[in-house]
Nucleic acid binder design. Sequence first.
DNA 1: AACCTTGGCTAAGTAGCTTAGCTTTAAGGC
DNA 2: GCCTTAAAGCTAAGCTACTTAGCCAAGGTT
Lengths: 191, 191
Amino acid sequence: MPRVGLNQQAVVREAARLADEVGFQQLTLAALAGRLGVALPSLYKHVRGADGLTQKLAALATAELANDMTSAAVGRSGGDALRAMADAYRDYAHRHPGRYPATQRVPDPADPEHVEAGERAVGAIFAVLRGYGLTGDDAVDATRALRRALHGFVTLEAAGGFGLPRDVDRSYRQLVASMDISFRSWPASDG
Amino acid sequence: MPRVGLNQQAVVREAARLADEVGFQQLTLAALAGRLGVALPSLYKHVRGADGLTQKLAALATAELANDMTSAAVGRSGGDALRAMADAYRDYAHRHPGRYPATQRVPDPADPEHVEAGERAVGAIFAVLRGYGLTGDDAVDATRALRRALHGFVTLEAAGGFGLPRDVDRSYRQLVASMDISFRSWPASDG
DNA sequence: AACCTTGGCTAAGTAGCTTAGCTTTAAGGC
DNA sequence: GCCTTAAAGCTAAGCTACTTAGCCAAGGTT
């Protein structure tokens, strides 16, 4: 029995690749083990079963997405920053259709890297909102609104949920434009 | 073997109740069969397996949601109608936590009732948007934006995804208020 | 060289879904 | 009132996927 020499990182990275190829839902331990050239139960030496694997995948994907969003916004502000970040978000979902769904998982408090990645993602949005003069509770609400809008879009897009015949890129630009308007005239916090 | 006397409707209705109790993900054929007092394979006489069951559940839930949204908006217009409909949407998700996720399933073209329910739901939103003077492509984009916003909110809320400490009802009102503003100054279609 | 941690394995068991094929109920025609 | 038959139930069997238990060998450490 020649050793393959796996470790957790190698397993999770391969899982990410596989997920992008076959889809998040189709990511199975059996397929992953086959890809890595080991028997299925061997994976348990590296990750805590199927759930542990998806949690680690979530941590990886969240970190990647946070990176992309941050780099997109750097050196920009206001509507420019918003558009750049929104594009980076959608791009990531397109480039990594299998990893993207994992980013929606609530960070595991027991995994510091996961928690940190989540905070960086939120922080990137916060930074953009500061350009609109939004801070404190307003920024919290606005962050939620933006996350929802972006996530909702790419999810429905991926599901083919846009039955209505309308150019999708354009819809996205419209969405971002409307968020821009919302943020500029954000309802007063005591509303 | 005394007959229970099931039919498709009885099976789907019980599935809806069960889903609300144990959660959409935990809705299993085994649990449903136990609840109905029949052996698991007997369900196949009424629905086409697990997938067929969730599709029928989706049709039921979508119809219910469309009804609620429509009744909420009737006799109102503009921001009033928007708020009422948004509240009805979130209420439904709260009252039927197990059915709600099923409403996100793309309508099955082979199931006329499902298709019709989906059209009624979109139609209810369209009617409200007409009050903002939005029609045609603008209404399409705005409908997508509203669906996303509402769905995103209740999904994140259900997932406990609002880690940030902030009153959730209030966030919802803010969200709806910001949609109201967006719709009143919707970007021109040629933007 | 002996040790012992680690990464691999096989075997076995669980949960859930599905199909095949049989039996019985109960409705309808004669 | 019987006979036929479609429908509704059943058991048996098999599939996929995940999980646990327990064993063995590879290979670094002392």
